[in-house]
Structures are given as structure tokens and as C-alpha cells.
């Protein structure tokens, strides 16, 4: 039996979150209709906390690389370190890319680095899959495999706790009274759930014919100059940028300067979206991506051509958020199918 597995009851876990709330900002997922949202841990709303289920609506980057981060001048709100519980495999796997962008290269982003270093990330296994889930096609799984400090696997009224880092171990050691050792039977129950949800995702992938990373390799490059194909993909795009903003691997940002009321000359790092017309435009008026289809193509090029080339990584975790967020019903899986097959197969419902 691996010694890094424990178990904790749901009640004890919430007591622990309550105690941790003094020193930490503790965020957990709440059910709201069919969706899950991260919000501050509130013992009064314990019944709505869902530490299982599927991915939350907010991508995990919202907490480490927030939509608007003050990076210069004016005072920052003094805030406690973050504990984010309930993070799914399709979000955690995005750290390979976010860390690459913000921590590696010649220059580290110190704001990202601080947020990343201070946060305790607690993963959870998915307990079911949705039709838009395709993590397995993107070399992922419906349970955390990497980039978590602790992981919770929901088993009836308790959780199996896996310890992955020293940060996670310290938390267990400090609150050892809440945790019992897990036994092989617990691990077996966890693995049965993992296999069941993985099979569910595989089933969704098979039914739609969703392409995997092996099939996608080279597909963007091969079709790059088929303008009509890209125009077809972009025909219902309203360039709202939702696909960019909800995407756990999208990392682009702009720098925004403003004078505050107190006359601080602030600078912010704010999420940007490559679907916006002005994204690559320069002051002189030149714009390498004047047309909407070029901007949609750019999104796919960045994810399925650029990052495979520079990082050997397909920059999609299969979370499915962009599919759910798109008001134009553009389905990334269908675009990839179109690219691999070299033609645009309109989905059956159109």
C-alpha cells in the first residue's frame, strides 16, 4: 500500500477547510444548475459543494494568471495564499503550458511565479463525463495526473487523498488528526470509478469520431492555405473571444496603463483574445490577420502547430469549455475533424 494515500470524511474535510480559512483563501466548487463554479468556502453552503462531478466553468488559470493582475505601482490588496480545491485533470494539465510561458524562457513573470508558488492545488477525480469532454483524446484523463499537491477521489461519503508534493504533505502533517490511512480496498474503489469515467469519455469520443493527438499532428499545417475551409469554420464566429477566455491553455495578455483616483500610475496585465480584430494590429495600421478566418485559423495554429513545435505539446486539454461557450456553435472537435479529413463535415444537427 503506498504510504502517500490517506482518507478523510466529507464532514472532516469541510471542518478542515473551515480551519484553513483563517490563514488561506479557500475556494471550492459549488453546483449551480448543471454547472460548477469556484467560490470561497462557506460552511453555510456545504450542501452545494461538489468535490467530484466535472470541470468548473472557470478555468484554473483564473486563479494563478488572473484576468486582471496589477503589475505596477498602486498598492495591491494584501491577500492570503490560495487553496483551490476540486481542480480537474483537464485544468491541471494546462500547467505544462502556463508554466512554460510564464516561468520559462529568459524572463520569469514574477507575479505568476508568486501565485503559483503560494497556491495549494487540490485536485479531484471526475465522477462523470459530459458529451463535450474529450480529455482522453488529448492524452489526458478524467482524473489529475500531474501538477496537484493533493488529490481527492470521492468514494461515497469520504475521499481518498493522494499526496503528490511536499506542500501537500505539510498540510496533511499539520492536520494529521483529520486523516486516516487508506487501504487497498479504497484504492480499488477509486480505480473502478476512474476506469468507469474514462470509458465514458472514450465512448463520447468514439460516437462523435473526435480526433486524437496522433491524428491531429500536422493537420493545421496541411490545410493552412485552404482558405475556403477556414472561412467555413469561421462562418458563425462573432469574434467574442469566449473560446480564448475560457480556455485553460490560452495565455495571451495585454498591458494596460491607467491613472487611479489616487494618481497611482498603474499597469495591469489583462487577458487578451486573438479572435479580436486588433490583437495583432500595429499603430501604423498594418494587421497580419485582417480577416476573421485568419484569426480563427491563428487560434488553431497556435494550439495545434506552434505549441507542438516549440513545446511538443498539443495546447488543448479536452475540457470542452470552448465548445460550450461559443455562441456560434463552433465545435473545436468538428474543426479538427475537418482538418484531419481535409473537408468540413457540417455537424448532423445543422
Amino acid at each position: 500500500m503506498p504510504t502517500n494515500h490517506y482518507k478523510i470524511t466529507r464532514k472532516d474535510l469541510f471542518d478542515l477547510f473551515g480551519r484553513l480559512s483563517d490563514a488561506y483563501k479557500v475556494f471550492v466548487p459549488y453546483a449551480k444548475g448543471e454547472r460548477l463554479y469556484f467560490d470561497k468556502f462557506d460552511p453555510a453552503k456545504e450542501d452545494l459543494i461538489e468535490l467530484g462531478g466535472i470541470k468548473q466553468s472557470q478555468p484554473v488559470k483564473s486563479f494563478i494568471n488572473p484576468p486582471r493582475e496589477k503589475i505596477l505601482n498602486g498598492p495591491k490588496k494584501d491577500s492570503k495564499p490560495l487553496i483551490l480545491a476540486g481542480v480537474k485533470g483537464c485544468d491541471l494539465s494546462s500547467f505544462i503550458l502556463q508554466d512554460f510561458v510564464f516561468l520559462q524562457g529568459d524572463t520569469e513573470d514574477p507575479f505568476y511565479a508568486t501565485n503559483r508558488k503560494n497556491a495549494i492545488l487540490i485536485g479531484t477525480d471526475c465522477t462523470y463525463a459530459k458529451e463535450t469532454c474529450f480529455c482522453v483524446a488529448m492524452e489526458g484523463a478524467p482524473y489529475p495526473q500531474k501538477y496537484f499537491d493533493l488529490n481527492l477521489s470521492s468514494i461515497t461519503d469520504y475521499f481518498i487523498v493522494e499526496v503528490a508534493t511536499d506542500k501537500g504533505k505539510a498540510l496533511i502533517d499539520n492536520f494529521r488528526m483529520f486523516f486516516k490511512n487508506a487501504n487497498p480496498q479504497d484504492i480499488k474503489l477509486r480505480d473502478i470509478n476512474r476506469d468507469r469515467v474514462t470509458a465514458q469519455v472514450r465512448d463520447f469520443i468514439a460516437r462523435r469520431g473526435t480526433k486524437d493527438t496522433v491524428q491531429i499532428k500536422g493537420a493545421v499545417e496541411k490545410n493552412y492555405n485552404l482558405t475556403a475551409l477556414w472561412q467555413d469554420f469561421a462562418s458563425t464566429c462573432v469574434e467574442c473571444g469566449a473560446c480564448n477566455l475560457v480556455c485553460p491553455t490560452c495565455h495571451c495578455f495585454l498591458l494596460f496603463d491607467e491613472k487611479s483616483k489616487e494618481d497611482f500610475k498603474n499597469r495591469y496585465r489583462i487577458w487578451d483574445a486573438c479572435l479580436y480584430k486588433t490583437f495583432a494590429k500595429v499603430a501604423g495600421g498594418a494587421n497580419p490577420r485582417k480577416h476573421l478566418y485568419e484569426r480563427l485559423r491563428n487560434r488553431f495554429e497556435k494550439k495545434f502547430d506552434f505549441f507542438p513545435k516549440v513545446l511538443n505539446y498539443f495546447a488543448c486539454t479536452g475540457c470542452g469549455r470552448c465548445i460550450e461557450a461559443c455562441p456560434g456553435d463552433i465545435d473545436l472537435r468538428e474543426v479538427l475533424k475537418g482538418l484531419v479529413d481535409g473537408k468540413w463535415n457540417k455537424p448532423p444537427n445543422e
Partner: peptide, 19 residues
């Protein structure tokens, strides 16, 4: 090739040309 260079350190994504 003076593109829309913003951050200057290869992170913000604006000035990408191919690889």
C-alpha cells in the same frame, strides 16, 4: 519585422510570426 510587440519577453502572444 516590427509586429505588435507588447510584453517584449515572449509571453503576451501578440507578435508571433509562425514559430
Amino acid at each position: 519585422m516590427e509586429k505588435n510587440m507588447s510584453c517584449g519577453i515572449g509571453k503576451c502572444g501578440h507578435c508571433r510570426i509562425g514559430p
